[in-house]
């Protein structure tokens, strides 16, 4: 990701009086291009009834800058994606140091953890999702054409 443009876009939302609505990560399973899997991270903002988001594809190990300088409340989400997904967020205003959820299994939402769980399920004959997801554009590229969110007139944006 381009750190400077990203932070500039975030600052635009901040100056525009938007409220941080959500930072969400989704693990994508490993593919041939990305053997370690990847993360689809969304930063969503709300102003009046408009809902917009920025989207980045992150590879494990990539550095993701904290947006807590513009949006102080981001620390909770950032600590969360760091702890559950293992995304390397840097420069947080409040660093809870992995003490937010304290799950028994470390980084349970990461692509490798999901894969391990699904493979174990498959080996044990437990019905669960396939460790090899169907091919096709379901990630960021797909999002642009996805239907608009239901609850408000929105302008979904992809970065």
């Amino acid at each position: 990701m381009d750190r400077t443009t990203f932070l500039a876009r975030i600052e635009e939302y901040h100056m525009g009086g938007w409220r941080l609505a959500l930072i969400n990560a989704t693990s994508a399973m490993s593919t041939e291009e990305q053997p370690g899997g990847s993360f689809d991270v969304v930063w969503a903002f709300v102003k009046d009834n408009a809902f917009e988001y920025l989207r980045e594809e992150i590879v494990p190990g990539d550095e993701v800058p904290s947006i807590s300088a513009s949006f102080p409340a981001a620390f909770l989400y950032e600590n969360e994606i760091r702890e559950l997904f293992g995304i390397n967020v840097t420069g947080l205003n409040v660093d809870l140091g992995g003490q937010l959820y304290k799950t028994a299994k470390k980084i349970p939402f990461s692509p490798s953890a999901i894969r391990a769980r699904l493979e174990a399920n498959a080996a044990a004959g437990i019905a669960s999702a396939s460790p090899t997801p169907p091919a096709g554009p379901h990630g960021a590229a797909h999002a642009a054409s996805s239907p608009a969110p239901t609850s408000a007139p929105t302008a979904g944006k992809t970065a």
Partner: peptide
Amino acid sequence: AGEAFTRLEQPRGEVV
């Protein structure tokens, strides 16, 4: 197939 964001006003506030 696809994705969606949904927002609702719960008693405690906005849920996404």
